[in-house]
Amino acid sequence: MSGYGTSPTARVVVGVSGSLGSVTALRRATALARRLGAELWPVLAWEPPGGEAATRRTATSGLLTEDWQRLAKQRLASVLDEIFGEDGPGVTAHPVVVRGLPGPALVATADRDTDLLVVGAGRRGLRRAFSGRVSRHCLAHAVCPVLAVPPSPLASALMAVHRRNAWHRRMDTREL
């Protein structure tokens, strides 16, 4: 990885959705961009509700598409502001909003062999079989190195609390 910091156009591309896994990946990507002297490219991929086929069937799809694009830009700006605040990430950042599925959108954005693509690795446990599609797609199709960041330890603790709340079970607060 030492060769990445030598090019002035080196980029660290990271998928951002606002989920805890994507926030963990964003923090790791930011630290890597600082260390490598690279640009940070946070990418939020979006699709219209109902998918592309539903959009083609409506007469006002152009207006709706503009609204969804604007909302996606607002969401990305909100996530970046929440994570970095007014100080920013400390590196040159180029936030990008892409219409499409997350995996192909990230691979298309990280299209240089000098890029580094950072993605969240998905959940662990019972939901493992149904998660991680984005990271698997990126690992299989990217032309650049891919770093799959494991979930934060906080994620499993939050899931345990969520399960307890869903089952209306008491929580032992002595450990908190």
Rank of each mutant, 00 (worst) to 15 (best):
M1Q: 02
G3S: 13
Y4H: 08
R11D: 03
R11E: 05
V14S: 04
G15F: 08
G15H: 07
G15Q: 03
G15P: 07
S17G: 13
S17P: 05
S17L: 03
S17M: 03
G18M: 07
G21P: 07
V23H: 06
V23D: 10
T24S: 09
A25I: 08
L26D: 04
R28W: 10
A31N: 04
A31T: 00
A31C: 03
L32A: 07
A33D: 01
R35N: 02
L36P: 03
G37R: 01
A38G: 02
A38T: 01
E39A: 13
E39V: 05
P42C: 06
V43C: 02
V43R: 04
L44S: 05
L44T: 12
W46F: 08
P49H: 05
G51Y: 11
E52K: 10
A53C: 04
A54H: 05
R56Y: 14
R56L: 15
R57V: 06
R57N: 04
R57K: 00
A59C: 03
G62P: 01
L64S: 07
T65H: 13
E66H: 11
W68K: 02
Q69N: 07
R70W: 11
R70H: 12
L71A: 09
A72Q: 00
A72I: 00
K73I: 05
K73M: 10
L76A: 08
S78P: 06
D81Q: 13
E82K: 08
I83E: 15
G85H: 00
G85P: 03
E86F: 06
D87Q: 14
G88A: 06
P95H: 02
P95V: 00
V96S: 03
V97G: 11
V97Q: 12
V98W: 03
R99C: 13
G100T: 02
L101N: 08
P104I: 11
P104Y: 10
A105M: 01
A105R: 04
T109G: 00
T109L: 05
T109A: 08
D113F: 12
D115M: 06
L116C: 02
V119R: 08
G120H: 08
A121K: 13
A121C: 09
A121S: 15
G122C: 09
G122S: 14
G125V: 07
L126M: 10
R127Q: 14
R127H: 13
R128P: 06
R128Y: 07
A129E: 11
F130W: 10
F130T: 06
F130V: 15
G132H: 02
G132M: 05
G132E: 04
G132V: 05
R133Y: 04
S135E: 07
R136N: 11
R136Y: 00
R136F: 05
H137V: 02
L139T: 14
A142D: 09
A142K: 07
V143K: 13
V143Q: 14
V143P: 07
C144V: 01
V146K: 05
V146W: 01
L147R: 03
S152W: 07
S152R: 06
A155Q: 10
A155N: 01
S156R: 15
L158V: 06
M159H: 15
M159P: 04
A160P: 06
V161W: 11
V161R: 15
V161Q: 14
H162V: 12
H162M: 11
R163M: 14
N165V: 09
M171Q: 10
D172F: 09
R174Q: 15
R174W: 12
R174F: 11
E175T: 15
L176S: 15
L176C: 14
L176K: 14
